[in-house]
Design a protein around this nucleic acid. Structure first.
Length: 323
DNA sequence: AACCTTCTCAACCGCCCCAGG
DNA sequence: GCCTGGGGCGGTTGAGAAGGT
């Protein structure tokens, strides 16, 4: 049995939204708030799919949406965030107040890529490591139509492309979802990977997540609730000199930390700790391998410095929960 | 002016995660 | 543990606009 579509497709309007529809949607949300998108069209008197309503609201009608051209600062920020996060537009959008993921994605695809190419820069390839590789994708019931056929074709091409990519892929860590409470509870020295706010860290400029360059692989048992924290550069607090393997039973949490053998890690890792927390962090593996350009340490440091500066400028000002 | 090509971006689609039953 | 619905995300499309010939 297949999953029911998000809404009955028959008789629904598609395409550009009219002013009247916008008004209906805006008024309804003003009165009743966001959410319940599935039922919203009926209640609001709209002949639209719930998803379509959500998209329209999120991308255009929501208060505080910034329209128009991107400033140079915004563009720089996008480029840097993209180099760190890849195509995770929602994360990038989270750091650009008033900009939506869709807008940033469009801007990237139409403007930034072109600019980078002209400048002779090959935008970094990113591939998000799958959270649960063993999980089979859910099969949908097939009702062949031209669109579906097209999609199939696309899918096949995509598969082919991915297999080609695997040799030159840059792995990006899967974002970790943390509740705001945990962020507040964490030490100011912590460096945390957050889904909602991308890579985040303390406001202490010396606490750079330097270990990205030496941390080869973290394996966390499935279903672990963890808080990845405190990657600090400090010669006086070395976990282990060149190859670190830690296993601990912290509320049944199994932790393996393997550093890159090829790298001289001495003096770079103070601590790698995983603190159980209330949020649901479900992943098998975080790969930081290739996350940064290992061959150029100074460049790495520079990028992080810039990033941290950006975070401190943009993130903490706009995101009180991270304060 | 007419036609063709390229570009832009709003909107759609399928997939996935997560919470709740 | 499985199933289902809600919601969110990223990739892609295609109509209209802009530019070129």
């Amino acid at each position: 049995m297949g999953r029911a579509p998000c809404c009955a497709k028959e008789g629904l309007r598609k395409g550009p939204w009219s002013t009247k529809e916008d008004l209906l949607l805006t008024n309804y949300i003003k009165e009743n708030g966001e959410g319940q998108w599935r039922n919203l069209p009926n209640k609001a008197g709209l002949l639209r799919c719930g998803k379509s309503c959500r998209l329209r609201w999120m991308n255009y009608l929501r208060p505080g949406i910034k329209r128009g051209n991107f400033s140079q600062d915004e563009e720089d920020l996008i480029i840097r965030l993209h180099s760190l996060l890849g195509n995770r537009w929602s994360l990038i959008a989270g750091r650009l107040p008033g900009r939506t993921d869709n807008e940033i994605k469009n801007y990237w695809n139409t403007h930034v890529i072109k600019k980078l190419k002209i400048a002779g820069i090959q935008p970094k390839l990113h591939k998000v490591h799958k959270v649960s590789p063993k999980k089979e994708p859910k099969k949908k019931p097939k009702t062949e139509n031209p669109r579906k056929k097209q999609d199939k074709k696309k899918k096949n091409n995509k598969k082919k492309d991915q297999s080609l990519d695997t040799l030159q892929v840059v792995f990006v860590p899967k974002p970790i979802r943390l509740s705001s409470g945990l962020i507040r509870n964490s030490s100011v020295e912590d460096v945390a990977l957050l889904s909602n706010s991308s890579l985040c860290c303390s406001d202490s400029p010396k606490m750079l997540p330097q270990t990205c360059q030496v941390l080869k692989k973290c394996t966390i048992s499935e279903g672990s609730d963890i808080h990845l924290s405190a990657f600090l550069k400090s010669p006086s607090n070395i976990a282990s000199p060149s190859n670190s393997y830690e296993e601990g039973d912290n509320n049944n949490k199994k932790i393996n930390v393997i550093t890159n053998d090829d790298e001289n890690v001495e003096g770079k890792i103070k601590e790698v700790s995983f603190i159980p927390c209330a949020s649901n962090l479900l992943f098998d593996e975080v790969l930081l391998d290739g996350f940064c350009d290992l061959s150029n340490e100074s460049m790495l440091e520079k990028v992080y410095e810039e990033y941290l500066q950006l975070i401190s400028e943009k993130c903490y000002q706009d995101d009180p929960m991270l304060m």
